[in-house]
Design a protein around this nucleic acid. Structure first.
Lengths: 195, 195
DNA sequence: CAGAAAAGTTAACTCGGTTAATGTTTTGAC
DNA sequence: GTCAAAACATTAACCGAGTTAACTTTTCTG
């Protein structure tokens, strides 16, 4: 069932991903070539590109896997979409989910720093966000109102998590920031509720 | 004053831009190489890159020149920022300003189509939009509330113009769509006003 | 175990973008 | 007008991302 073939594929995939992120964190995205990564994972360059379509994907596939989450949260819930997303975000804060920006693990911070300081990566993340927004608009039913609502919801989440990350890089601990982060989230989603 | 040197530079710049857009519209962005453009403008490849930092900029420098408009509109106005931007957008609709999406000139439509159908270009446009949003947040005074407001305002404009463009590509004329476009704009900005 | 199918390798290529060495023009001072 | 110094262009070579083709190895199937 889980044949040797599939296991090896998984192994190669993981070896590439791990080698890439390690090298990126140590030397920076632009200073590492895909040839370096392929060599570190003992694989040829064409093989690398069979596993990851672009160099960016080597750094971002974990984020890419979260695609469509907002739409999923909304369709899975029976309550008001705004409340559902607010609760989901607040819950993410409690769990210190990296996507909320409220995680001060050094590796996580370094990873975010890598993404935000590398234009090529920031850009690609934005593509995922845009796709998320389109999916959310669709999940809400489409039309002008829902497109606007989706845009509001996604950018609210973006602003909140970016603020958290900025505060953490300022030296505050996640535990210290937690209460403020929850308050800001409730305020931000609150203004979308009364509308 | 306007020395020969500067005049020649302007000429080369225009020749490159024109050749590029012509070729892109005819063959598509990915099917035209920068070498083709350089050849069409009778210039070497390194020279081309002294005038335009990237291939994308050859297609987008006209849009890039509009950067920071939202922030400028707000700082130039004495009234409420939301009203100022709404009025500016509605005025753009009346003028059939391409940035509102309400312009059915075939070349303009083709140009938009080129941008939206070319991931590399769409992505770069989004970078401009994001910068616009940051500048607007700054112009509004910064802080959570203003960051959220800026995000709302920018995405409102994005949603509105995209809807207009979609309608136009469906075959409607700009003149026919005009009334609806104004109504949608007033509705969309309206929900940001009453708070 | 035989052989089809999947995956990997090597080598060479395209294209965007850069660099260094080497001319040419334009300019401005005399 | 002459001429040296900027400024700008060209050629040729290079780098790195991503692709392609021909060929070999590994795994699955019967």
């Amino acid at each position: 069932m889980a044949g040797l073939r599939d296991r090896k594929k998984q192994q190669t995939h993981d070896a590439l991903s791990q080698a890439a992120i390690e090298l990126f964190l140590e030397h920076g995205f632009d200073e590492v070539s895909v040839a370096d990564i392929a060599a570190a994972a003992d694989v040829s360059k064409p093989t690398l590109f069979k596993y990851f379509a672009t160099k960016q994907d080597l750094a971002l596939h974990r984020i890419a896997d979260h695609a469509g989450e907002a739409a999923r949260v909304v369709t899975a819930s029976t309550t008001d979409p705004v409340e559902a997303l607010r609760d989901h975000f607040v819950d993410g804060l409690k769990q210190r989910d990296p996507v909320t920006g409220l995680n001060d693990n050094p590796t996580v911070l370094a990873y975010y720093r890598l993404i935000l300081h590398t234009p090529a990566l920031a850009t690609r993340v934005h593509q995922f966000v845009a796709a998320d927004q389109a999916a959310l608009a669709e999940a809400l039913g489409g039309g002008l109102t829902n497109e606007l609502a989706a845009a509001d919801l996604i950018s609210t989440q973006q602003v909140l998590s970016r603020r958290n990350w900025v505060a953490l890089t300022g030296g505050i601990t996640a535990d210290t920031l937690y209460r403020t982060a929850v308050a800001e989230a409730k305020q931000a989603y609150g203004r979308l509720l009364r509308r």
